[in-house]
Amino acid sequence: MTRQRLVTALLALGVVLLFALPLAVDGGRSAYVGSDTQAVTAIQESDPGYRPWFESVFAPASPAVESGLFALQAAVGGGVLGYVLGRLRGRRLAAHDGAARTPDDTP
């Protein structure tokens, strides 16, 4: 394995550990409520009289539908990112090929 690839693997492993370790250490005690939801709870505790004055124009029918839409968002983003990186790599390899071949092709 080249050094380049080792560094990539270690970086990826680091990212995974960063999020897997808290889960493992916690052992299922925490609910992992979203911080955005906690902020709403904090507002309601400190200012019980506050009423939101506008409703979401569209709210997913259930948590399952909502997580599906979040997955869709991630999939679209991941798809576009993968497409771009693939195009960039293809372009580099094509340019590389072209540069290598040009001297032979020219009479």
């Binding site: 808290p22 916690d26 925490s30 979203g34 979040f70 991630a74």
Partner: peptide
Amino acid sequence: AIKLPSITGSS
């Protein structure tokens, strides 16, 4: 789009 768990027990 990705909610991740954190050391504080929230995400």
